[in-house]
Amino acid sequence: MFDPPSSEALLRAARDFIKEKLIPDLKDQSRFHALVAVNVLEIVMREIVSGEAAREREKARLQRLLGLEDGLSLEEANRRLCKKIEAGEISLETLKDHLWETVLDKVAVDQPRYGKHQK
């Protein structure tokens, strides 16, 4: 229903404006905060592109680990997983791949350079 540009393209335009037009004239604290703003926009851009698929993968893995009923939110599923971990009802060997894949998917959106150290 929404016409172009896409949300990603809109964010990109805002990001480029801050980066190319504003930041060169800024100093000290304002410059630092503008760089943080660019970083935040880039996180959201990456999440728009790859977030949905990452959520689906996480849900499928949780489904295999926990056997979830339909309609359970990702947050509820993770809450259940936490309870099992806290109760010692699930072994690290069973969990390990799921936790790594989830965290690497998150870092790929939040801080792709950090994730590259790990693979």
Binding site: N78, L81, C82
Partner: peptide, 9 residues
Amino acid sequence: GHPRPVMAL
């Protein structure tokens, strides 16, 4: 209050 399995572990 946000569930974080890695932290629970």
